[in-house]
Amino acid sequence: MQYENESNSPSFIERARRAQILAAAVEVVANEGFGKASLARIARQAGISKGVVTYHFSNKDEILEQMVTDYFNRGWEFMEPRINAQPTAVGQVKAWVSSQLEFFTSHPAEFFAMAAVMSNHLNDDGSSRYDNDNQEAVDGLAEILTAGQQEGQLRDFNPARVANIILRSIDGVLSSWATTRGRDDGTMNLTADIEALEDFITHAIEKESS
């Protein structure tokens, strides 16, 4: 029998310090922009030395990647039980839409920071570092759609392509929300947009009763 070597696990203090650094990075990116997110600026935001930052993270790339990973992990922890609580595929898709939009819009600073990092933190060849994250979301939603087809709840279509379209539609609502956030001119009603998107998706995927 093998036992986990607890000495290799980060201590509570180490986890707290890493969380502090990540929170500081979020604030810098969200408030000052991606280009300002240097190790020195993150350290200053956190109220610690740059040496403390590099003790916990090898470089800025690691911080930014961990920011995105943590955000998506917490988002999925919020979404998963709401999705699984629905007994039908249509209900699960609608729960995916509403819970993702609820989580993202309830954490605006982190959302704007995450969006900035994903748009600007690229590989050397200009490709996105986060294609795998996007593909995992497509695959997860496509799995729900496939199960719904197999159970006779949904009509015939390509699950992966439709999953991608649904996720891009969520991005569209988020883009509108981000653009109009803080304005009180009636140009954006998030609740109404979520309901309209859910209604549109339901009509697009649900199998017509004979």
Rank of each mutant, 00 (worst) to 15 (best):
V97T: 04
A43P: 01
E136W: 12
A30S: 10
L141C: 02
I13Q: 13
Q66V: 07
D125I: 05
T105G: 02
A37L: 01
A24Y: 09
A24H: 05
N123I: 04
A24L: 04
L64K: 00
L122W: 09
R82L: 13
S119H: 14
G91F: 05
A137F: 05
A30F: 01
V90C: 06
T88M: 05
H121E: 04
K94H: 12
L101C: 09
G75F: 06
A37S: 03
Q20R: 14
E102T: 10
V97A: 00
D70N: 15
A95N: 02
N31P: 01
K36C: 12
E136L: 14
N134Y: 11
Y71K: 03
A37N: 03
E65H: 06
G126V: 07
H107D: 07
E6I: 03
F57D: 09
A142G: 03
Y3C: 03
P87M: 07
G91W: 08
M67Q: 11
S128N: 10
I63A: 01
N134I: 06
W76Y: 11
V52I: 13
F111E: 14
Y71H: 11
F72V: 08
A95H: 01
R82D: 01
D139K: 14
A109Q: 15
R82K: 15
V138I: 15
Y71M: 06
T69M: 12
A46V: 04
D70H: 13
H107Y: 12
G51M: 11
L141H: 01
F111D: 11
N84G: 09
F34G: 05
Y55N: 12
E32W: 03
F12R: 13
